Simulated assay, not measured.
Amino acid sequence: MSVSKLALDDYLPYRLSVASNAVSTLISTAYDSIHGLKIPEWRLIWVLNEDGPSTQQALVKRTGMDKVTISRAAQALAKRRLITRAPHEYDGRSHHLILSSEGERLFADVAPSAVEFEKVVLANLSAEEVVVLKDLLRRVEEAALKVQNDKSK
């Protein structure tokens, strides 16, 4: 397809961004209105709940968010005592972020609503289509990361 024939609505990065924003905004209602959490803060809570203590660098890799976004989200969560910080055992410049018991309770309160919103968003897809969609998204992500890594060498 030539550049002059490319329509924005057919451009993959645009479609992915718009879809991601729409889904994230919808699901964020589950934790923003009740708990006052922003999308990056909820992502950190979910990752820390799933992965356990993590460094900010590990969270950047895991979430795809930049360092500044991770840092701001971590500061906001620490201020609310939803996470704690512990020194890194090998790197004095780094520390681990750890979900506090209050953060664990918040996750347990919010996660069911987030899962329900996901079900609503995916309701028009069959179970097989959901599996294919998630697989395709992972493959697109892996391809983009490979190109980034190849360019940085």
Rank of each mutant, 00 (worst) to 15 (best):
P53C: 02
T63S: 10
A123F: 00
I45E: 03
E50G: 13
N49G: 13
A78W: 01
L97N: 06
W46A: 11
I45T: 08
R80F: 01
S100T: 10
K5V: 08
L97S: 04
Y31C: 01
S24C: 12
Q75E: 10
A108M: 03
S20M: 05
T29I: 06
A76C: 11
G36M: 00
L59P: 06
F117S: 02
E104A: 12
V121W: 02
L6C: 06
D66T: 03
A73F: 05
A78M: 04
A7I: 08
S33K: 05
Y90C: 08
S20P: 15
R72Y: 09
I70D: 00
A123V: 01
V47T: 13
E118W: 05
Y31S: 03
S24W: 02
A22C: 09
A114R: 05
T84Q: 07
I83A: 05
S17F: 09
V60P: 10
A58R: 14
D66C: 06
Y31M: 02
R15N: 02
T29E: 15
N49D: 09
R80D: 07
S94R: 12
A108Y: 00
I70M: 02
V110D: 00
I39S: 07
T25S: 14
P13A: 05
K79G: 14
A111I: 09
V18R: 04
S126Q: 13
E89N: 12
R72L: 12
S126T: 15
L106C: 03
D109R: 07
V121Y: 02
G92C: 06
K38V: 09
S54P: 10
